[in-house]
Amino acid sequence: EGQRKWSAWKQLGDMSAEQAMQEYVSCVCALDPEGSQKLSERRGGEKQTGFGGPAVSSLYQEEKIREEDKNIFDYCRENNIEHVSKAIHSKKVDVNTRDEEGRALLHWACDRGHKDLVSLLLQNNADINSQDDEGQTALVLSLSLASACEFAEIVELLLKAGADPSIKDQEGSLPEEVTESSAISSLLRQYTAPKG
């Protein structure tokens, strides 16, 4: 358990505890977008402290960006398929454009568990094996969250589309080393095994 905690924090690099908490909250909200809203309504909008509740909803609200300030990555993170699709089809945005951390739209769609958006990006020739500044592919991001059902489905979608499970990150880690799921490890080995 101690080693897993250390490995998890090591993967965050120089990320602050506050940023890690905000990303965790975003992930929880992505998995249950109505949960934080229901909790807030149930408490009558009172400012409360402690684990859960307002800590989740207030952090989630902090991430809200005014419509005029949004970029393509914001639309991708919020799963706005219509906007992303229009931007790609009108050639206003390259499907493989990267943010300041080297993450492409496919990285963000996988990170947030947006399976339909992942499919759209793959259909529009997103570079499935593109690596961010830390050497992580979209497959690695999906694997790190694959305990949730929709993330496991994305892992399989990426593998079927040609994601290479033998690409190592900057620390020399293989995608299989990210997951603790024996089913997903088996799936990765199936796609790593020589064809023939």
Rank of each mutant, 00 (worst) to 15 (best):
K92A: 13
K92E: 12
K92R: 13
K92Q: 14
V93N: 06
V93G: 05
D94M: 12
D94G: 00
D94N: 15
D94C: 09
V95S: 08
V95M: 12
V95I: 13
V95H: 07
N96T: 11
T97F: 04
T97A: 15
R98T: 14
R98M: 13
D99W: 05
E100L: 13
E100C: 14
E101C: 03
E101Q: 09
G102I: 05
R103I: 01
R103P: 00
R103W: 08
R103T: 05
R103N: 13
R103E: 11
R103G: 01
R103H: 11
A104P: 04
A104F: 02
L105Y: 10
L105P: 02
L105Q: 00
L106N: 03
L106Y: 05
L106C: 11
L106E: 09
H107Q: 08
W108P: 02
W108A: 02
A109I: 07
A109D: 08
A109T: 09
A109H: 08
A109W: 12
C110V: 03
D111F: 15
R112M: 13
R112Q: 15
R112D: 06
R112V: 04
G113E: 07
G113R: 08
G113P: 04
G113N: 08
G113T: 07
G113A: 07
G113Y: 11
G113M: 07
H114Y: 10
H114P: 00
H114V: 01
K115H: 14
K115G: 10
D116N: 11
D116I: 04
L117D: 00
V118Y: 06
V118S: 00
S119P: 02
S119F: 05
S119C: 10
S119V: 08
S119D: 14
S119N: 14
L120I: 09
L120W: 05
L120N: 03
L120D: 09
L121A: 08
L121T: 07
L121W: 03
Q123H: 12
